[in-house]
Amino acid sequence: MMAGWVRTLITTLLCLTLSGALAASIWAIAGNPTPVDLPRLLSENMDRSGVAHPVTAVLLNFRSYDTLLEIGVLVIAGIAGISMAKTASLEDPELRTSDTLLYALQRWFVPLMLVLAGYLLWAGAERPGGAFQAGAVVAATGVLMRLGGIPMDFLRPGLLLRLGLGLGFSVFLVVAVASAIGGEAFLAYPPGLTKALIVVIESVLTLSIAMVLLALFVSAPVNDAEDPEEGGPA
């Protein structure tokens, strides 16, 4: 076994070299123009995308397959997270407080945050915003409610929670497949409906993203249920 300081030294040198090489590469790359001008191509096709904001257009139209899989990744994390929680309810009674100041604050903040989430979702069409930002704010509202001890009975690993986790993803998927059945390519929106479909997808995605994030927050597991494992130290 190598001494600790030798390892530290080697790792330091490795990281410094890597950062240096990286900086040199970035410098070298920055000196030349790119052969493909993707932003121009994007702006030429913007009018066919159904939304006014280019980032939203890329996320939900040009590269919607990325977004579909990305929501899949989020759902996986949610599933794996709640699979760790082996209690009937994800609620933690210890967190219930009766702090009047916190309670008063929540009465102001929770509705305000929900309105903000709605605005972020709506704004996504023409300026920065969109499903993920809105979902994150809704999830944060949930976190605030939980920390403040407001009971949230829907957060048990039952059918409702699982429906919520999968809802946004399934709607996205149904739209993708419906477009294929309609004769277009997989994930191609039928012309004329693009805008409406993107709004629908964004709304349900907001809900599901919030559910996943909140489920991950509350599924911190604290009980002793066990499963025998194989192959490990017997």
């Binding site: 990305e70 929501i71 990744v73 989020l74 996986i76 994390a77 794996a80 997270g81 760790m84 993920f132 996943v212 994030l213 991950l216 927050f217 599924s219 911190a220 597991p221």
Partner: peptide, 12 residues
């Protein structure tokens, strides 16, 4: 989003 998913899973 992917990094958040991975981070949250790792924390759990």
């Amino acid at each position: 989003v992917v990094a958040i998913a991975a981070t949250a899973l790792a924390v759990v």
